[in-house]
Amino acid sequence: MHDKLNALPMKSVRYFALAVLLAAALLGAFSGRALAQDPQPPSDDQVNAVAKELYCPVCENIPLDVCPTQACAQWRELIRLKLSQGWSEDDIRSYFAEQYGDRVLAAPPLQGFNWVFYVLLGVFAIFAVVVYIRVVRNLKAKSTAADASAIASQPAEQDDYLKRMEEELNRREKSS
């Protein structure tokens, strides 16, 4: 449970942080007007609402809103910047997916190779349900057959049993 939290590869973190800073600087340069027009910067909660749905490409499986690394803190600032420019949450998610790949999304989108995942998951699940139904049917059929044969064979079995009982009683009577 703890391995994901081992030290991050510092080189990757540095490159990532650099890329984020660069993107932030470029965006800042082109959106000075937009910022100036917005009197109320987005709150931490608004930023976290978007960040919660995104995953850091450097840290394994940690949502961006709780990732404690410096790189992720800068990424959150980038989200704040985009929100202040009026981007929607979907726009921001798409932007990050384009920049860093589908792995930043909380679930792979239905496209390309990801179809394999969803199709096979469905196939596996259907297979499991079919196996279950077959097992139940077989066991039920066996049960019906057993009931039928039990009813059919009952008199004969009883006859045989009575016959053996009588034989045994006769034998005992004779021996005594």
Partner: peptide
């Protein structure tokens, strides 16, 4: 699947709690 995806496409995917 993230391992399979990385193996075939070079891209990892994430399955988060939601």
């Amino acid at each position: 699947f993230p391992i399979v995806s990385e193996l075939f496409t070079g891209q990892k995917v994430t399955f988060g709690p939601p």
